[in-house]
Each structure stands twice: as C-alpha cells, then as structure tokens.
C-alpha cells in the first residue's frame, strides 16, 4: 500500500496585524508517520497547529486533511483529526468518564459505541484507575493523558499534539513519550515541541520552524547523518602545530580540547580515512578518531540563531 498523504499544508500565511506569524509554510504528513514540529518559543508552532486543527483561519494558503479542505469541508476534515492544544481543553468539574463521553458525542461517535470508545481510549492512555475521579483532582500528568485520550477517542487518522509534555516531571514525560510512540503505530502524529530529545526519541521526520518559516525539513536518519559528518574528535600522541591541522584538506577550524586532543570542524567532503593516513605518514600517533554525534540541540541553535542574525542584519540594512 502506498503511503497516502493525510495532511497537506500549502503556502500557509498568517498575519496578526503587521506581524507575520507564518510565512509560506508547507508540510505534508503521510500515514503512519510521526512528524516532529520543532521551533523556539514564538516561532509559529502553535499558530500552525491551531490552523491545521481549524481553530484559527489562515490569512492565505490551504490545509487539506485526508483530502478535505479544513475551511470548505470542515466536518469531514475535522472527523479525521484529533487535537490536543497546548493547554488541554478539560472541563475540570467533570469526571474522566463524563468528560470523555461528552468528547465522544462531540465527535459523533454513535451512542452504542461510546462506552467501547471510552474504554479503548482509557486503556491506551492508562486512565483505568482514575476513570471515576474528577479531572480537577488529577495530577498534571494524568490531566495530560485525559487530553490525549480526548484526541484519540474517535480513532482519528491524524493526532496533533501541541507541546504535550510541558510542565510534566521526568517520569511522566517518559510515559507520555512512550504513549506517543505507540500512537505512531496506528495513527499519524504531528508533535509540536521545543524539547529536542523528545523529537529524537519519538519522531520519524523533523521540521524546524523559525520566525514563521520552515528552516529545515529532514528525516531523523537524515538529520543524524548530517550531524555526524561534520565534527570529529581526534587525539594525537605526537601532535603537530595547530596550523598544520587547520591546513589539512576540508578542515575548516580546529579547536584544542586538551593536550593532544582536538575537535575538527570539517566540511561535508571530509573523509576520516584521509586524516588517518596523514596521521600515520606524519607519525602523529593517532589514538582516537571519533565522529562526533553532534546534538540536534547544536543544530537547532545554529539554525535558529543564524537566522536571527540574518534577520537583524536585514533590519539594519532596512
């Protein structure tokens, strides 16, 4: 079966007055995919999620969910969609069961299937023990789970989660991430977050958004290889002058970490084998040659900060 496209976002623009919150955002989500939507605070993540879920109208551009336009055929589009906003939309004066029953009705689940749907959602989200408790009395982690249960109660094709782990303790975070990974097996998921390990541990593909524009889009594997290439840590028993290392082919800069230990920042064409042979030829006594798995964090900061700088530059020239 070909992996059909469930969400297609085309040329999305959103202005708040003079502020351009989103500019030309395009994204697609395929069936069974977990897409990480990454960006610093205020980058336009929530705005995008709100538009995809039909809570906000775009200034221009369109959103297709399962082939239905969210503005022209909202009912069909929204039926395929489960949404957990940044702040879970909970009626805290209800019990978990009452709340989920209401959500089931809102999502037009036939009356006969409601209790089955509630039982399934509760089981998936581990809510079995708290079903009869008031939502107001639940811990934040459990409230978040109720929010996720609400989003999957009608088994939508797409689940959109907007910063689902904010404000949780580390154990809760791990549990929610496990839950998200499980969701990925039979739903497509868009996960918006500014927490990088979350993306690394749950997503297949990553989109980094900054200042309302998509700054980078790649699969997680592609990102890993992209990260691995460029930084190499070497340790030499008989190191040459720093300048000699810098002068090597495809090495951009060299950083000395400690006596005899260096970090090479290389261009894309750098081949570690070449370095090894020159180390042998010059008797530098190569002890260590470790490709650095650069953190996503570094890349994230590089992308978002470099963009900031260029933006500032634009402002200066303007």
């Amino acid at each position: 079966m070909s992996r059909e496209t469930l969400i297609q976002v085309e040329n999305l623009y959103r202005d708040y007055g003079n502020l351009h919150a989103l500019a030309d955002v395009n994204l697609t989500l395929k069936r069974g995919e977990v897409l990480g939507f990454l960006g610093p605070n205020g980058a336009g993540k929530s705005t995008t999620m709100q538009i995809i879920s039909g809570n906000l109208a775009p200034t221009s551009g369109r959103v297709l969910i399962n082939g239905f336009d969210i503005l022209d055929e909202p009912r069909q589009a929204k039926a395929a969609l489960g949404f957990l906003p940044e702040q879970p939309p909970l009626y805290t004066e209800l019990t978990v069961i009452e709340y989920l029953e209401y959500c089931a009705k809102l999502n037009r689940i036939p009356r006969a299937d409601i209790s089955k749907a509630i039982a399934r959602a509760c089981e998936r989200c581990g809510l079995g023990d708290v079903q009869k408790r008031l939502i107001a009395n639940l811990s934040k982690g459990y409230q978040q789970r109720v929010g996720i249960a609400q989003a999957i109660i009608h088994t939508p094709e797409v689940v959109i989660l907007d910063e689902p782990t904010v404000g949780l303790d580390p154990i809760q975070i791990r549990e929610i991430r496990t839950l998200i990974r499980e969701l990925g097996s039979d739903h497509s998921v868009i996960l918006s977050t500014h927490i990088l390990p979350e993306v690394q541990s749950t997503c297949d593909r990553v989109i980094i958004i900054n200042r309302g524009k998509i700054a980078l889009e790649d699969s997680l594997a592609g990102l890993d290889s992209r990260l691995r290439k460029n930084i190499i840590t070497v340790s030499l028993g008989n190191p040459p002058e720093l300048a000699t290392l810098t002068a090597l082919n495809n090495v951009d800069t060299v950083e000395q970490l400690s006596e005899g230990r260096y970090q090479l920042h290389c261009s894309d064409d750098f081949n570690p084998a070449d370095f090894a042979s020159s180390a042998v030829n010059n008797s530098w006594q190569l002890n260590e040659l470790t490709p650095q798995t650069g953190s996503l964090e570094q890349m994230f900061i590089d992308i978002t900060c470099s963009d900031n700088n260029s933006h500032q530059a634009e402002e200066v020239t303007a």
Binding site: Q50, R75, P85, P89, Y91, L106, R108
Partner: peptide, 14 residues
Amino acid sequence: KNKTSQLLFSAPIS
C-alpha cells in the same frame, strides 16, 4: 478563558 473552546472548534461540528 479555559481554552475548552478548542475542543468544540476542532470537533466535527458547525
């Protein structure tokens, strides 16, 4: 205020 309106607005209802 409680953002529960998002529940209504993202459900398949007019």
